[in-house]
Design a protein around this nucleic acid. Structure first.
Lengths: 140, 140
DNA sequence: GTGAATGCAAATCATTTGCACTCTT
DNA sequence: AAGAGTGCAAATGATTTGCATTCAC
């Protein structure tokens, strides 16, 4: 696991405390937070940081390939420091978003490629259902 | 192909000219238009119709299961009168969005189900690449 | 006639932008 | 010192909401 600071430098980006905080937060969570969520989580450590900075930073990190943007069908984007193309599962009861293993993609992609005349370069796969915890709740 | 009017009635909805126009437009296109696009296309026939009505109507039709909402990762939603869960391909050059065959889903779903403890009920699969026309353009 | 649907304008929400100021390099 | 990055406030764009009017039933 490389240092966030090193990653920023490699990309020729200035290493600011805000960027470090945002990148590290994303690298240490599995929650796929939105810009708003990131902003709130960092508010205590960076009381002067503005939401605009969060958005600008996310934009930069995305363009540099350090994070990816998800759109699960809500009104807003979520962010993921795992930049491998991997499927996601969304719990339609509690809203949680989890990763699925990247390896599941290979076969899918092969099959789709054979059935379209598009030259595919990327994909976003979202599955919706009930997470184990919510399945329990609903059965009571 | 059932009549749009009949579909609305079946769902207990009042049959208004605006609803008919919107539903028919969606049922007769493969373009996956946004609310804005729908509004513009109908502007000549319904000069007094407001964008708010388009949004309200889309909301109702979606809730009744007569159309589905797509989110290809743009800033806005697109709508599709094909309510079967089917994958979509997006051309990253011209922005076109096309349907893929529903049958491609079965295997995908089976495989994913085996690898997650979520109880899946739905999915949204978006593939991104270059459509045949754009492949040509780019090769010149 | 009655309640649901429409149309307008105002409101909201996520995201973006402009610009002066402040840091990293 | 120079330019990139930040923070604020204002702008934008998509979508939603409130409410009076109109229309489908």
């Amino acid at each position: 696991m490389e240092e966030a600071a090193a990653l920023l430098k490699q990309k020729g980006l200035k290493v600011t405390p805000q960027r470090l905080a945002i990148l590290n937060l994303l690298r240490n969570t599995k929650e796929h937070p939105t810009a708003e969520t990131i902003y709130k989580k960092l508010a205590s450590d960076f009381p002067t940081m503005s939401l605009a900075t969060v958005y600008k930073t996310l934009e930069v990190l995305k363009n540099m390939g350090l994070i990816q943007e998800l759109n699960v069908g809500e009104g807003s984007f979520r962010y993921d420091a795992n930049t491998n193309s991997h499927p996601h599962v969304v719990c339609i009861s509690c809203g949680k978003v989890e990763d699925l293993d990247e390896s599941l993609l290979k076969d899918v992609l092969d099959e789709i490629s054979q059935h379209t005349d598009y030259k595919l370069v990327e994909q976003k796969l979202y599955f919706y259902g009930y997470c184990p915890a919510c399945q329990h709740k609903l059965n009571n």
